[in-house]
Amino acid sequence: MRGDVRKPSRDYLVGFLCMLACIAIAPWVLYPLFLMRVLCYAIFVMAFNLLAGYSGLVSFGHAAFFGMGAYAAAWSAKNLGIPAEVAVAIGGLTGAALGVVIGWLSIRRTGIYFAMITLALAQLVYFFCVQVPFTHGENGIQQVPRLKLFGAIPLAGSMAMYWFTAGVFILCFLAVHRIIHSPFGKVLQAIRENEPRATSLGYRTKNYKLIAFVLSALFSGVAGGLLALVFGFATLESVHYTTSGEVVLMALVGGFGTVFGPLTGSLALSAMENYLAPFGSWVTVAEGAIFIAAVLAFRRGIIGEVMAKLKVSL
């Protein structure tokens, strides 16, 4: 689980510019709806990676923040008459609020206990969503409007929505990059490498871990809220534990603790799901097989391998 963070150098800048170019060209090559899904999940994986890759806390319950973010954004988009960016922000704040509670409980343990606790607490959130009326149970919240950006620019068209999604993604990307390379981010990496040593240097490691957890939950909620606007619904699937597993897999395939891994992992897995969609449960089998292969053969992920081959840091 290591992300080597040396100087944020020329490599990053070149990588970032390439990424911007790809995002700009992509909607003329691929379906915008597919790309929007990729970008939303990429934000989600970046959020997960902030915690798993840079703080060493692998959560198996991130669907809770993602799903609740989606529900909150969908509900407020339908009922409050607000601009699109506010709906997405409400998704993020809901994720963060839930992150305070779940994070506060789960950072009491580390390692695999942490993974099991987050999974169990997320399952509690799932059962909560099954029971409460505002989620509309099996049907989910349907026909969510895409709203208007700043209350003025309509996002109903797929290109307009694509640029909005891409904009949110780039903002999140820069924010996460800033966090990782801040003194705060360095302390997180120190905690990941050796927590007792970080404690002995005078850092209150619990506070750092909780803040990292809440930030991760915030971005997860943003991702969920954005996805709800893109597809116009929020359902139980997004709070289900399989979604938590999916984000772990995307992060693993892209590369834990890498800056460009999340987008790569999201693109690779979304493409696979798209192609295998007609084959029903074979998607599950393929995902499982990729999990096994990734853990056994390429734990550094796609970007991690590229970094090692080209001796660059991405």
Partner: peptide
């Protein structure tokens, strides 16, 4: 933690 990830993959394969 990799053991957990790997066996999660095994679970997905068996269930699928």
């Amino acid at each position: 933690i990799y053991g957990l990830l790997l066996t999660f993959g095994v679970a997905l394969v068996i269930e699928g």
